[in-house]
C-alpha cells in the first residue's frame, strides 16, 4: 500500500492540476486578505468558498484520477499484491497531494499575514482541518462513484449530481421541509438530517469554533443548543470522520468484488 501510495503521489505531484488547485487557493486567500483587514471575516468568506469548492474539486479530480489510472490499476492488480493495497494506495496518494496543495495554497498567504501570532490561529486551523476532511470525504465518494460506473460519462454525471445534491439541493429541501412542518417540533429531526450532510457539518463545525451565532443558521443553532459548543464540535468532527470512512469502506468493498 505504501508503495502504490508513494508512486501515485509522485505522479500527481507532477500533474498540472495539483498546481492549478494550489494556485487557486493561493490567489483567493491573498486577494481576500488584502481586501479585508479583519482576519475572522476573511476566514468566514474562505469557509464559504471551501465548503462548496473543495467537495467539487475533490469529486472531479477523484473520478478523473480513478478513470485515468484504471488501465494501470489492472497492471498493478496482476502483481503479487492485494487489491486493497492497490486502491487504498491510490486513494491516499490522491488525498495526500490534494491536501498538500490545499494546505500550502492557504497556508502561505496566512503565514505571511501573520496568522500564527494572531488570536485567530485556532480558527484558521479549524478552517484547514475542515478543508482537509472535506477533501478526504469527497475523494472517497468520487472513487466510489467511479468504481460503480464503468462508463466515464455516467460516472462524471453521477459525481456532479452527488456534489450538487449535497452542496445545493440538500439545503433547499431542508429549508422547504422546515417551512412546511414549522408547527411541529423539528429540532431532533433537523439534528439527524444535518449529520447526513458533510457540507452542512463542516459549516457548523467552523461556526461553532468561530462562535458567531448570527451565522449559525437554524441547524447550527439547534446543534449548539443540543450539544453545547465543545460537545457539538466533537460530535460534528466524529460524524465528519465517519463520512470519510463510510464511502472509503464501501469503495473497497465494491472493488473487492469487481471484475477488471
Amino acid at each position: 500500500m505504501i508503495k502504490t501510495l508513494k508512486y501515485s503521489f509522485y505522479d500527481l505531484a507532477r500533474s498540472n492540476w495539483t498546481y492549478l488547485y494550489m494556485l487557486f487557493y493561493l490567489l483567493t486567500a491573498l486577494s481576500l486578505l488584502f481586501l479585508s483587514n479583519d482576519l475572522s471575516r476573511v476566514i468566514v468568506s474562505l469557509m464559504n468558498i471551501i465548503i462548496v469548492l473543495t467537495p467539487l474539486i475533490g469529486m472531479m479530480l477523484g473520478t478523473m484520477y480513478y478513470y485515468n489510472t484504471r488501465d494501470f490499476a489492472e497492471l498493478l492488480l496482476a502483481q503479487p499484491i492485494q487489491r486493497k493495497s492497490v486502491f487504498l494506495g491510490q486513494y491516499l496518494g490522491l488525498s495526500l497531494s490534494m491536501t498538500l496543495s490545499f494546505l500550502v495554497g492557504l497556508g502561505i498567504p496566512f503565514i505571511i499575514y501573520g496568522v500564527l501570532v494572531s488570536s485567530e490561529v485556532w480558527n484558521f486551523s479549524m478552517l484547514l482541518l475542515v478543508g482537509v476532511l472535506l477533501t478526504l470525504v469527497f475523494a472517497a465518494l468520487a472513487f466510489l462513484v467511479a468504481a460503480m460506473f464503468e462508463n466515464k460519462i455516467k460516472g462524471f454525471g453521477v459525481a456532479i449530481v452527488v456534489w450538487l445534491s449535497l452542496a445545493v439541493v440538500y439545503d433547499g429541501l431542508f429549508l422547504l421541509a422546515m417551512m412546511l412542518f414549522e408547527s411541529y417540533p423539528l429540532e431532533n429531526a433537523a439534528l439527524g438530517i444535518t449529520l447526513l450532510n458533510p457540507i452542512d457539518l463542516s459549516r457548523i463545525l467552523i461556526m461553532l469554533k468561530l462562535d458567531i451565532s448570527a451565522l449559525l443558521g437554524y441547524t447550527g443553532a439547534v446543534f449548539n443548543k443540543f450539544f453545547g459548543t465543545s460537545l457539538g464540535l466533537l460530535v460534528s468532527l466524529g460524524a465528519l470522520s465517519l463520512w470519510v470512512l463510510a464511502p472509503l469502506g464501501l469503495f473497497l468493498r465494491v472493488v473487492k468484488h469487481k471484475d477488471f
Binding site: 508503495k3 502504490t4 508512486y7 501515485s8 509522485y10 505522479d11 500527481l12 505531484a13 507532477r14 500533474s15 485515468n68 489510472t69 488501465d71 494501470f72 489492472e74 497492471l75 498493478l76 496482476a78 502483481q79 503479487p80 499484491i81
Partner: peptide, 27 residues
C-alpha cells in the same frame, strides 16, 4: 506470473525509469 495486458497505459507523469523501479519495488 508475468502478465502482458492488451492495453498499455501508465501513470502519465512518471518517467520510464521510475515505472521500472516502481514495479521492481512492488515485486
Amino acid at each position: 506470473i508475468g502478465y502482458l495486458p492488451q492495453i498499455a497505459r501508465f501513470p502519465e507523469n512518471l518517467r520510464v525509469r521510475e515505472l521500472f523501479s516502481m514495479i521492481q519495488d512492488i515485486r
